[in-house]
């Protein structure tokens, strides 16, 4: 799934991001394959997204979130 599909409160692990289409700054802010990302909330108009990446707060736009592959973390139940 993609990062923008997360619901507020859900956590996921970044799997892949397309460096050709995303600015290097995203990586520099700590978002890269292996990082844990949590969606805290969306702005009132559904964009931008307020995230926590490895515990550090970050805000990005939806179009950017759409280009980040993530894997949902489900606590307790495995292999859902």
């Amino acid at each position: 799934m993609k990062l923008h599909e997360l619901k507020p409160g859900q956590k996921a692990v970044v799997r892949h991001l397309d460096v050709d289409r995303l600015p290097m700054k995203l990586v520099e802010m700590g978002c890269f394959p292996g990082s844990e990302v949590e969606l805290i909330l969306k702005a009132p108009l559904g964009d931008p997204y307020y995230l926590r990446i490895d515990g550090m707060p970050l805000c990005i736009r939806k179009d950017m979130a759409m280009q980040v592959d993530v894997e949902l973390l489900t606590y307790g139940i495995h292999g859902s």
């Binding site: 289409r21 995303l22 600015p23 700054k25 995203l26 802010m29 931008p48 307020y50 550090m56 707060p57 970050l58 805000c59 990005i60 736009r61 950017m64």
Partner: peptide, 11 residues
């Protein structure tokens, strides 16, 4: 260049 927004949300 593509427009983007990346900002930190400081405490």
């Amino acid at each position: 260049s593509r427009s983007y927004l990346i900002i930190e949300m400081p405490p």
